[in-house]
Amino acid sequence: MSRQPYVRPVSKTTWYMRNGRYRKYMLREVTCLLVGVYCFLTIWALAALAAGADTWNGFLASQQNTVMVVFHAFALVYFLIYQAFDWFKLAPKAMPVQLGEKKLPDRYIIIAHYVAWAFVSLFVFWLTGVI
């Protein structure tokens, strides 16, 4: 009486293509590559800043081309959809707020995140003189 459990074959490399939710998960997870790119781009900027005015202006000039415009525009839209907005949506699951017997409704936590995000963004734009 040997038992032969059926093991459904699942590809280790393409499993997320079977289901929309898995695909969305993978689209979110790969945002870490964008985070890495922008971290090291910012570190490069800091290195240029530490080296003096000429190097800093050279760095700014090196960033001003069509390829970078296309890359940043794509990165901005992708990052907003798959990391920023997703993170705000998950926030009430990760940090539920308990009020006595009840829980604060999810939408208040999500709205608070959007308000804080708008505030942070406007503050940075104000700080850098964009607005």
């Binding site: 922008y38 960033q63 525009a73 990165a75 901005l76 990052f79 804080a116 942070v120 850098t128």
Partner: peptide
């Protein structure tokens, strides 16, 4: 931190790439 700060950081890089250097990014 990335969710709050990176959209505006990427936007700043985009603005610079478009050839505009905002006041606050001058040396």
């Amino acid at each position: 931190v990335t969710a709050f700060v990176f959209p505006v950081l990427i936007a700043l890089f985009l603005i610079v790439a478009l050839g505009i250097v905002p006041e606050g990014l001058r040396f």
